[in-house]
Design a protein around this nucleic acid. Structure first.
Lengths: 162, 162
DNA sequence: TATTGTTATACTCTATAACTATA
DNA sequence: TATAGTTATAGAGTATAACAATA
């Protein structure tokens, strides 16, 4: 069973035999796997009445198990500060999160999930994880382990370059 | 050296010990690796005076080594037909590609790279591949091989579900 | 009637920076 | 003067479907 990128590499070796295109084999496939995964992940999340970004914010708050500032939120989610602000507005509208005044530094605030918000994000995360599990079933659990470790190794070195 | 997703999994196991979040370890990392790779890939491509989408279209034409219809282009690049149409307009403006009339089916056309276009895409691809190679250097060539094979296996089964 | 490609629309996301209120 | 967060703006991409020309 060959994939799209394999055909692409064959074409390149015909047209530009002087070029070693093997790095495309990995980076091209990472991008392609992302493109295949996204619609499924998005669909599950949307079925819980939220966008993927809103899910990321709520899930970040949930697993932090306590208040976070908008700055902490945009740094861990890799979003811009502006994006976090406007998304928080919409989550506050739905009473899924609250902004608490920070008495120690009144420029800042602390964002928390409401009880209602926890009631929304918990089943969403459960569905999300179940969906992810199904999506990976075409690899054995050993292959999944290996894949996860290789990605973790790469990320460990690149994230720490920041 | 631990990565961001590992910390995230630890947090989940604290807050929701009932949930097996290990699938996040792979899908989360795929998305995160993509987010780290993109800016670098984009920067190299932009330095050749084109957007990533324009690069994808030009590279697709280059390795096809002959004319393609807009339909073939949007299917292989996973873009919408509308996106391809408007991007082709801009590439035609720069005289990097041409639309040839298809005498056999006058609804359709055949898109080709001009000599000028080939002169632009070839060095861009060379730079792109070199950049990708550098980006992967934190993995050994054996690890790269394993990673590519695992991704290819997953994609081979999912792409063929279409 | 179906298909190819183009065009138009509205929507989302992004990046940037101006702005406010505090420190 | 610097920082935290909000707000406003413009640009790029996407999805959708209406549309014209042709089959």
């Amino acid at each position: 069973m060959s994939d799209h990128v394999e055909k692409l590499l064959l074409q390149w070796s015909d047209v530009r035999p002087d070029l070693d295109c093997s790095p495309m084999g990995i980076i091209g496939r990472i991008g392609r796997m992302e493109k295949f995964l996204s619609p499924s992940v998005e669909a599950v999340i949307n079925s819980h009445g939220m966008s993927r970004i809103e899910f990321d914010l709520m899930a970040t708050l949930r697993r932090a198990n306590g208040p976070l500032t908008p700055t902490e939120l945009y740094k861990t989610t890799m979003l811009s500060s502006g994006a976090v602000s406007s998304k928080l507005d919409k989550l506050v509208d739905r009473a899924w999160v609250e902004r608490l005044v920070n008495e120690e530094d009144r420029r800042s605030c602390r964002v928390i999930l409401t009880e209602k918000g926890i009631g929304v994000i918990d089943p969403a995360v459960e569905d999300h994880v179940y969906n992810q599990k199904k999506l990976l079933e075409s690899l054995t659990s050993e292959e999944q382990q290996t894949l996860g470790n290789l990605l973790a190794k790469w990320l460990g070195e690149h994230e720490n370059q920041l």
